[in-house]
Amino acid sequence: MPNQTLSTQQFVDIKEVKGGVLYLKGGGIRRVLAVGGINFDLKSQEEQEVILHSFQNFLNTLDFSIQIFIHSRKVNVQSYLQKIEERKAEEQNELLKIQIGDYIEFVKTFVRDNPIVTKTFFIVVPYETPKASAPTKGLLGFFKKKPASKAKTDERMEHQKQTFQLGQRVDEVIQGLGGIGVHAQPLEDEEITELFYNLYNPALIEKEDLAIAQSPEAEEQKKNPKEA
């Protein structure tokens, strides 16, 4: 009996990820933005009303749809525990060593019994590419057929046009969110791959060293340390 096992990729409607752009099997393209947050509950009632009104205006200015989704994931504390272990190895005071060891065991036990979950917010910006028309059959199809070099040139120009228009939409979303104090950062190839891997493997813990596991504000400070 032939093996009927199918890979996860066959169930994902993504053809490839290149240059931070998701190319769908159906022809559409997407960009994913990691979005920060604001302490809405700590704002005054007037400030909350201003934020809600500004967000409503932002949505009304868009002439295309967007998708907003929240990804919950387990926090990886291994790197933190590793630093504590290194601190313990450097400590000369035996009493402090014991206390550090007890603290490490406490953190391990607490995380095991009470998984720490953080939420990351994303916005998907779409652009639907025009579907290619069906080829004409018969004699007319022969005359309408383009040379291979011409077809490749047209395809490349159309691809550049589509990615440019998608980029304009991304900039519009980033600027609109920035107007209400929310920072948004486009994900790159590795971050997108990690995101979808964890979406289809929810029991696993994400790697902490990737930008997706950090807030957009923290990632921006890493890129511009002088501004921090």
Score class of each variant (00 low, 15 high):
1 M>I: 13
2 P>M: 09
6 L>C: 03
7 S>R: 11
7 S>M: 06
7 S>V: 02
10 Q>A: 10
12 V>P: 06
14 I>C: 05
14 I>S: 00
16 E>F: 14
23 Y>G: 00
29 I>H: 03
33 L>I: 04
37 G>A: 08
37 G>F: 08
40 F>M: 01
41 D>Q: 15
42 L>R: 15
43 K>S: 09
53 H>S: 11
57 N>S: 09
59 L>S: 01
60 N>C: 01
61 T>W: 07
62 L>T: 01
62 L>G: 04
66 I>C: 04
67 Q>S: 07
70 I>G: 08
71 H>W: 15
79 S>N: 11
79 S>H: 14
81 L>H: 04
91 E>G: 06
97 K>L: 07
97 K>C: 04
101 G>I: 10
104 I>F: 03
104 I>W: 02
105 E>Q: 15
117 V>L: 05
122 F>Q: 03
126 P>S: 04
127 Y>W: 10
128 E>M: 14
129 T>C: 05
137 K>V: 13
140 L>H: 12
142 F>C: 09
146 K>W: 03
153 T>S: 15
154 D>R: 14
155 E>C: 10
159 H>Q: 13
163 T>K: 12
165 Q>D: 13
165 Q>P: 10
170 V>F: 06
172 E>Q: 14
173 V>C: 01
174 I>H: 01
177 L>T: 00
180 I>C: 00
181 G>R: 04
188 E>C: 07
194 E>D: 15
195 L>R: 02
196 F>M: 04
203 A>R: 15
204 L>S: 15
206 E>W: 13
214 Q>S: 15
216 P>C: 06
221 Q>C: 07
227 E>R: 15
228 A>Y: 13
228 A>L: 09
